[in-house]
Every structure is written in structure tokens, then in C-alpha cells.
């Protein structure tokens, strides 16, 4: 493995680690979500009526393990191609 290939490999590993760090930072969800629910605080009338808090959905992108694997696969394919392209060509003697 030449220097260029090593650089590509190390960059790919670092990017994949970043992808999984971001995934962990978003709460390690299994599936990617585009909405999250938020519990609304109970009003006085809702308390008097014995109701539970209403949930509302807010638009928010939460990357899941599926997205992390997809991003890692893309990084692996691109780095694999680059490693292939950067391989040393055999010289005829």
C-alpha cells in the first residue's frame, strides 16, 4: 500500500468514526426520523378534565443506524475506488 492509499484509508476510517459519533450524539436511534414528538404542558382545564399531555410532532431530522450504515457504505465504496485508482502500476523492465 503506497502513501496515497494509506491516506485514503485513514481518511475513510476517520470519516466513518465521525459518522458513528454523530449518530451516537443524536441518541443512537435505530431508524432515521424526520419528526420527533414533544409533550405539551397540561393546561388547568386539561388537568381538571383528567387528561394526559397532548403530544405534538415537530420537524427534526434524527439520523438513525440505517443512515449511519448508508453513509459508511458510501465512504467505503468511494475510498475503495480511490485505493484501486492509486495502486502502483507495474513497470516493464
Amino acid at each position: 500500500m503506497n502513501k496515497k492509499q494509506k491516506n485514503v484509508l485513514i481518511s475513510a476510517i476517520i470519516l466513518i468514526v465521525i459518522v458513528f459519533t454523530v449518530w451516537a450524539g443524536y441518541g443512537m436511534e435505530i431508524f432515521t426520523k424526520n419528526k420527533v414528538f414533544v409533550e405539551m404542558p397540561l393546561t388547568d382545564i386539561e388537568k381538571a378534565l383528567g387528561l394526559a399531555p397532548t403530544k405534538t410532532w415537530q420537524d427534526k431530522f434524527i439520523p438513525g443506524l440505517d443512515a449511519a450504515f448508508a453513509a459508511s457504505a458510501v465512504i467505503s465504496i468511494i475510498s475503495g475506488l480511490l485505493i484501486f485508482l492509486f495502486k502502483n502500476k507495474k513497470k516493464d523492465i
Binding site: T43, D44, I45, E46, A48, L49, G50, L51, A52
Partner: peptide, 24 residues
Amino acid sequence: FEATYLEESEMTQKRAPGDLLGVR
């Protein structure tokens, strides 16, 4: 289930007119 009946008042009108029935 549990049901709570509230007669119309200033407080209930903030939610809806008339007597209210809360059901869980």
C-alpha cells in the same frame, strides 16, 4: 376508561363552549 364532567364556566370556555366531558 375514566370520564370527567365539567359544567360550563369561564375556565371551560377557553377550551370549548358548553359543558365538557374529558375521556381517557
